[in-house]
Computed example of a mutant assay.
Amino acid sequence: MSYEKVKQAKKTIVGIKQTVKALQTGHVTEVFVALDADVRMTKRAVLLAQNKGIPVVLVDSKRELGRACKIQVGAAVCAITEW
């Protein structure tokens, strides 16, 4: 279900740095984090989302998350935005 939600989203942001920037601007509605990603890398995005009250969804695979985001490589973090 989570991968489908990412696939159907009109606007997604892929990557840790881009997701953190979008969280800081306040345009993110939901964050997706791959469980097989390095926690040290994803921790900042997860904590920022939780502090702002934005839902964080855990998914199993970076590879599948990357495919859902329509990229050729794995994605540790992605976000759905409202604009």
Rank of each mutant, 00 (worst) to 15 (best):
M1P: 13
S2G: 11
Y3R: 01
E4T: 09
K5H: 11
K5A: 05
V6I: 14
V6F: 07
Q8H: 12
A9I: 11
K10L: 14
G15V: 02
G15W: 00
G15S: 03
K17A: 14
Q18G: 05
K21S: 14
K21Y: 04
L23I: 08
L23W: 03
L23V: 08
Q24E: 13
T25I: 15
T25D: 15
G26A: 11
H27N: 15
H27L: 11
E30T: 15
V31P: 00
F32W: 06
F32P: 00
F32H: 01
V33Y: 03
L35M: 12
L35Q: 14
D36P: 15
D36G: 06
A37K: 02
A37N: 04
D38Q: 10
R40H: 09
R40E: 14
T42S: 02
R44F: 03
R44G: 01
R44Q: 12
R44S: 05
V46K: 09
L47F: 08
N51R: 15
N51E: 14
K52H: 15
I54F: 00
P55Y: 10
P55C: 14
V56D: 13
V57N: 12
L58T: 02
L58M: 08
V59A: 05
V59Y: 07
D60E: 08
S61Y: 07
S61K: 08
S61Q: 10
S61E: 09
K62H: 00
K62A: 04
E64V: 03
L65K: 01
G66C: 10
R67D: 13
C69Q: 08
G74I: 03
A76S: 14
A76D: 14
V77R: 01
T81F: 01
E82W: 00
E82D: 12
W83H: 10
